[in-house]
Simulated assay, not measured.
Amino acid sequence: MRLSRVIPGLLAAGTVGAGAAFVIGMRNKSPWLQDRVRAFSKRFSSEALKTAGTRGATNGVVLHVGRASGRQYATPITPFPTPDGFVINLPYTSKVDWAQNVLAANSATIVHDGIEHRVTDPRIVPYAEVAPLLPKAAGVFRAVFDVQEFLRVTKVD
């Protein structure tokens, strides 16, 4: 068999295998994998922040204050508007720093579709509570990565 036919097949199998390992690790909430994905996300969040929150962008930004440092932070998120505020999925669980900061401060600012929204009353809720509020695409993401926790906030403005 010629290498020119074997190599593309091996590359495809490796890609599928890596993708499957990623999904399985995220579904099982592997601390090792989640730590690495979080580190990667933090390192490259500046790229995501270039368009997040702008008009027409899928992603938004949560502006929050560090509970220990007191510094202002901007973290890219995917907010889903609800009649009274937003729902944000937490694929890495509610233990992520930004969510803990919002919970500790009991407020934040979410920039979505080019508009800043002051939010309050953050609470961690299960999927069953927010399922009717989410678009179908969010349900697919939740199912693939077994997201169990969501942050729900209420708009002040």
Rank of each mutant, 00 (worst) to 15 (best):
R2C: 10
S4H: 15
R5M: 13
P8L: 09
G9T: 11
G14M: 05
V16G: 07
A18L: 10
A18P: 07
A21M: 10
V23S: 07
V23P: 09
I24F: 09
G25D: 05
G25F: 06
M26N: 01
R27W: 00
N28Q: 13
S30H: 00
Q34W: 02
V37R: 00
R38Y: 11
R38W: 10
R43A: 15
F44E: 04
S45E: 06
S46K: 14
A48V: 09
A48F: 08
A52K: 01
A52D: 02
G53E: 05
G56F: 04
G56T: 05
A57C: 07
A57G: 03
N59Y: 08
N59M: 13
V61S: 00
H64F: 06
H64R: 06
R67V: 05
A68I: 15
Q72D: 14
Q72A: 14
A74R: 08
A74Y: 02
T75V: 07
P76W: 02
I77R: 00
F80H: 08
P81Q: 05
P81F: 00
T82W: 03
P83I: 04
P83V: 09
P83L: 07
P83D: 12
G85Y: 02
I88V: 06
I88G: 01
P91L: 05
P91T: 07
P91E: 07
P91Y: 04
K95T: 11
V96H: 10
D97W: 00
Q100A: 01
Q100D: 01
L103E: 04
L103F: 01
A104K: 04
A105N: 02
S107L: 06
I110D: 01
H112I: 01
D113V: 00
G114V: 06
G114C: 07
H117D: 03
H117P: 02
R118I: 03
R123D: 09
R123I: 07
R123Q: 12
I124S: 02
I124K: 03
Y127K: 06
Y127Q: 03
A128V: 11
A128R: 12
E129T: 11
V130M: 04
V130G: 05
V130Q: 02
P132I: 09
P135D: 08
K136E: 15
V140R: 13
R142E: 15
R142G: 13
R142S: 15
A143C: 15
F145K: 13
V147T: 14
Q148C: 14
Q148A: 15
Q148P: 14
Q148M: 14
E149V: 11
E149N: 13
F150A: 11
L151G: 10
V153M: 04
T154E: 12
K155I: 12
V156R: 13
V156K: 12
